[in-house]
Design a protein around this nucleic acid. Structure first.
Length: 261
DNA sequence: ATGGTCGGTGTCCGA
């Protein structure tokens, strides 16, 4: 299975570059975040035309939204509420093989890394705590699971362009990294990208739009992740980040993360 | 320390 996760920043605007991804990388499953479209307006015909007839999506007007585009059939779809909100940040499907795929869009967390004064940051921390609790409840039978998505956290020093300069910037603060590590510990998740790329190597999946030349300044962060449970570790064949997609026509600010399992 | 740019929708908000 060739699997992609990509924060697409409006699916309706990005059909041409999704088509390019399909042509270049031939994925079996595409997980998207920030689709920014209500379910009734989801571009079903476009997805089918690209070869993805098995679709699962949970979207709302204007914000958030997640989707799974698949060539492989799946048996069931679950969308769960987090932090008491129906804000379309999670969808999961179970394939015929029994593999469970969880697609997340973790709250970005606003600008100020203080949960006392910034309710968006408090929301982000609470969301991560709920993820930990939810997966911890599955510890008795972890099985084969894949967790993907825009987790909005760059955990390692080499997951950001400057560890020192980003220590107080939301996405790389110690408090949220600690919460993300707790999620990772819940089912002993394995980071597929770091399974193949040494920790000393800088890796990014997002570059701000607010840059004159994203490639030259290269001030990126690795916010998008693919994790697998230990049962799937031996099935990991390769994992890489499609950096060049940041330079495609009308790009998302995130690029696809691709895993062969 | 500041402001820079996108997208969806709107005369701004969230990223």
């Amino acid at each position: 299975m060739r699997l992609v996760t990509w924060n697409i920043n409006s699916i309706r605007l990005r059909i041409p570059i999704i088509a390019k991804l399909v042509k270049d990388e031939n994925p079996d499953v595409i997980c998207l975040q920030e689709t920014k479209v209500v379910d009734g307006l989801f571009p079903v015909m476009d997805c089918e035309a690209l070869g993805y007839s098995h679709l699962a999506y949970s979207g709302m007007k204007s914000y958030n939204g997640v989707a799974v585009l698949s060539r492989l059939p799946f048996m069931k779809t679950i969308t769960k509420e987090w932090c008491g909100k129906s804000d379309c940040r999670h969808i999961s499907v179970t394939f015929e093989s029994g593999i469970e795929l969880h697609n997340f869009y973790v709250p970005a967390g606003g600008d100020v890394p203080n949960p006392e004064t910034n309710e968006k940051f408090a929301h982000k921390l609470q969301f991560l705590e709920e993820m930990t609790a939810w997966f911890s409840d599955m510890r008795s039978k972890p099985g084969s699971k894949i967790l993907v998505g825009d987790l909005n956290i760059a955990p390692l020093e080499t997951d950001v362009w400057s560890h020192k300069q980003l220590l107080k910037v939301v996405s790389h603060t110690p408090v949220e990294i600690e919460k993300l590590e707790a999620v990772k510990e819940s089912l002993k998740w394995i980071d597929a990208i770091r399974h193949f790329t040494p920790k000393k190597e800088h890796m990014y999946s997002w570059w701000s739009y607010r840059s004159r030349d994203w490639a030259a300044s290269d001030r990126g962060r690795r916010l998008d992740h693919v994790w697998v449970t230990p049962a799937l570790e031996k099935n990991l064949k390769s994992a890489y980040i499609l950096r060049q997609a940041r330079g495609w026509e009308k790009p998302s600010d995130h690029v696809p993360v691709i895993v062969n399992i």
